[in-house]
Amino acid sequence: MITLKEIIEALNLELLTPGLGLNRGVTAGYASDLLSCVMAGAKKDNIWVTLQSHMNVVAVASLLSLSAVLITEGKRPDPEVVAKAEQEGIVLLATERNNYYAVSRLSGLGIQDEP
């Protein structure tokens, strides 16, 4: 299983939660900006690609035990969001690029969806 560390290096991502370990594996990917859809569709240990940077992103990721959230389009969560993510053990990553780029690159690393 590919790890977060490998993904960060391959996509040259910014790590927003440096306090967290990166050896966790990623089983599959999920992409949506509607958190209600994510709650219904994302699975444990998935990486979630979204342009939302709201506090509820951490809540949803924590609820579902996701591996990480990749926040796109250069959006930066507020410091409280990052603090909450570190507390909950949710790795937050960031890229200036958009969802399409992120998903296509993750797909190139062999990360598929998990229906």
Binding site: L34, L35, S36, M39, N56
Partner: peptide, 9 residues
């Protein structure tokens, strides 16, 4: 609020 953010913050 619920569709986009899932829950009331």
């Amino acid at each position: 609020l619920f569709a986009n953010l899932g829950l009331v913050p």
